Amino acid sequence: MYDRISNKKDLIRQLKEQLLSMEGFSSGSVSRRLDFGLGPMNAAFPGGTFPIGSIHELVSPTEADAAAANGFLAGLLSTLMGQSGICLWISVGRKLFPPALKFFGIEPHRVIFVDVKLKKDGLWVMEQALKCTALSAVVAELREVSFAESRRLQLAVEDSRVTGFLHRIRPVSQATLACVSRWKISPQPSHSNGLPGVGFSRVQVELEKIRNGRPGSWQFEWRKGRFLFVPAKRPAALTAESAKNNLDSNKASTKMKAG
């Protein structure tokens, strides 16, 4: 009886993984082995793991957001690439400083930078690169991408299972794309724990769209080579105000009882 139940559970799990794979997700054993350090955010993903082998969209309305997004992206790439993986980074007007990748555990020589002048060239390079199974990931910094163009990119990864990132910096439109997710990353003040100097870098991660998942917002800190989830805290001013209100309420209640 127990073996029959166990076999049914395994069959259901396999069917779920097949369905997710058909919808553009990779949630198999490889995906489960990768720990991106996203902690409670994993619950937002279908299958409870970061979707690899898919196309993700990052939207940055400002240059500051773009810098924060590239930092967050570099943290994800450090896990995807592991110790020997290669990434292709395509840009129209690249601003990334390659040596800065070492801060996230990525040696610059393991990232192949392709700078193009036209968007159509960047899309062509990305589509061809996504078909190359020798790559761990492909990043493209492109301002505008249509649904049809994003659909071609998603179709390209369904066979290769290479993970792709479309980083749209200061886009004119917010049109829906065929990507499995849409992210918005914004910089946050660092916390130095009362010590002199600047604390660890922090970002606010907003998962605005995730297919078959639950969108949400989380804050992370990059510390000792990995992401650290930062729990939300009530502002000190709000806490003090609440305490004052409780005290006033208790005083009023005491007067009423005395009267």
Rank of each mutant, 00 (worst) to 15 (best):
D65V: 00
T239V: 13
A74E: 11
F72Q: 08
S146I: 05
S146G: 15
H56F: 06
T79C: 11
A258W: 00
L19V: 07
A236H: 01
E241R: 12
I112R: 15
E107Q: 15
N193Q: 11
I210M: 14
F103H: 14
V162M: 03
N193G: 06
F72L: 08
P40D: 13
G71Y: 01
R202N: 03
F113S: 04
Q204C: 11
L11Q: 14
W124I: 11
F103K: 14
E241C: 03
L155P: 03
E221D: 02
L80V: 10
A236R: 03
A69Q: 03
G53C: 01
G75S: 08
H56A: 06
V139F: 06
V198E: 11
L15Q: 15
N246G: 14
V180Q: 13
F147M: 07
A64R: 07
Q14C: 04
P171H: 12
E149Y: 04
N42D: 15
G164F: 04
V116E: 05
L76G: 09
L238P: 01
H56L: 13
E241G: 02
F165L: 05
L20V: 08
V30W: 06
Q18V: 10
W218K: 01
S160K: 07
L177A: 01
S29T: 11
G24L: 02
R4M: 11
P231H: 06
G85Y: 08
T49K: 10
P171A: 12
V205Y: 04
L166R: 01
A156Q: 14
R214P: 01
P46M: 07
S29K: 08
A134M: 02
V230Y: 02
V203M: 08
G194D: 07
S150V: 06
P46T: 06
I86L: 15
S78V: 03
K8D: 01
A68L: 03
D65E: 12
A243I: 15
V30C: 04
R182Q: 05
K233C: 10
K131S: 05
P187C: 07
V59H: 01
S253M: 14
V205L: 12
A74W: 09
E144A: 12
F227K: 02
E206G: 06
D248Q: 13
Q18A: 14
P51T: 09
Q188N: 03
V157E: 00
F72V: 09
L19E: 08
L73K: 02
Q154S: 14
I185D: 06
D248R: 13
G93R: 13
D159P: 00
N250M: 15
D10I: 05
R202W: 04
D159E: 14
L118V: 02
T176R: 13
M126T: 14
I5K: 11
F113I: 12
K16P: 00
R13H: 04
A148W: 08
